[in-house]
Design a protein around this nucleic acid. Structure first.
Lengths: 218, 218
DNA sequence: ATTAGCTTGTGAAATAATCCACTAATTATT
DNA sequence: AATAATTAGTGGATTATTTCACAAGCTAAT
């Protein structure tokens, strides 16, 4: 499978394409053009064609892309053929919400274990997911061969827990804490920092306003 | 205030710098160099200096940056001088978690109103935040002059609610739904799509593995 | 068949972002 | 006071990403 040397920017868009292709399939659409896709996912159509072209010639001129085929292809690329179990560490309010969140609806991923140091949570089942005490973290993750972890612990704990996760063999971390984690290069981190996003939003709104004012003054 | 023409990539990093500067201030650090910052936030030091330089000459050669001054400067840039009230629309499990989340700890932002169509939630107070029925959305947002909204509604509702928000005068949306919203160009959207991030993670882990295998084979 | 109309895939240009490497300024040391 | 050590700011090279624009190929209509 031609998988090498895909630009990062392209890789980030793959899940977006994948999701929309599922929408099309459910709507019984047989084919789709890059222009059509472009409107739905708000990515320039040339960019879409370029993105796809990294994986080969997936479309047909004058026709577009066959939805089912394309979807099948991306399913493989994105590892959606088999179920992937992930763990969640840190059952606070955000952690609990994510345990409730149905990742499995859109992806072949599910949270199969959670960890938290709080005594009252240990060995309970929450939203259908077993919660283990924090001191069993490394052991359980090794046992269950979990490769991906959702990290929803307080900032102060983030690096410490990360080090444990790495020693347990984890290769991917979805980090909700604001800390920039240090990890070896065979471990991938994706950061989701909600506070950041809100501030970025604030910044863009303000700078938009200033630009608009500039326009007016001309 | 020199605010125009800041590259997007730079703008996105501002909150990261801002947060770390706060950490330094709390640790009573008087000054910081771009090299030191670089280690903490994992951005190349030249990139940091370039980023700062868009706003003027904020540092001193041979010395670095004065933490307090720099912080004061970014506080202005990021609109952290005054409290900003935001609304949250969609009090599901994720929405509830965010209502519990202390944005105010790190930013001068707070959620001052929430909206949900569920009868049993209407006119209650949850996590200290009043919850209004959905049909008061436009009215309340206008009344309270809310400019920024956190959107945690189901995908099927996202665009419809967005249209209402726009008619109520909102200029920023932090969108947790997987839908790519259509908005006029004076409205900013930041997307947080957790499913996407997990899939991206999966993709990078897999492609990392293939690359490592390639290396070995050489 | 032939032709008109789409739509892909892609060279090449344009734009954006990062990073190297050096000068100039400042601090710290002797 | 002179010198060594730091460190910002930046010109310019490099790398990454997006976009234009068009030839080539396919579909569908006549």
């Amino acid at each position: 499978m031609a998988n090498r040397k895909i630009p990062r920017a392209t890789a980030r868009r793959l899940p977006v394409y994948y999701r929309y292709l599922n929408v099309l399939l459910n709507a019984n659409k047989k084919r789709v053009s890059s222009t059509e896709l472009s409107k739905a996912v708000q990515v320039d159509s040339a960019t879409i064609r370029r993105d796809f072209s990294y994986f080969g010639e997936l479309g047909k001129r004058g026709y577009g892309y066959d939805v089912e085929n394309l979807l099948k292809f991306f399913r493989g690329i994105l590892n959606q053929d088999k179920l992937t179990s992930v763990a969640l560490v840190g059952v606070g309010s955000l952690g609990s919400a994510l345990m409730n969140y149905n990742f499995h609806q859109n992806t072949n991923l599910r949270i199969s274990a959670a960890f938290d140091p709080k005594k009252e949570l240990a060995n309970t089942i929450k939203s259908g997911i077993p919660v283990y005490p924090a001191d069993e973290l490394v052991e359980q993750i090794k046992d269950q061969q979990i490769d991906i972890v959702i990290l929803t612990v307080p900032a102060s704990q983030a690096q410490k827990v990360t080090d444990q996760l790495i020693s347990a063999g984890v290769h991917g971390i979805l980090n909700f804490s604001p800390v920039r984690l240090s990890v070896p290069k065979d471990v991938q981190v994706q950061n989701i920092d909600m506070t950041n996003e809100l501030q970025t939003l604030t910044y863009f709104i303000e700078s938009n306003r200033l630009n608009a004012k500039d326009e007016q003054e001309k």
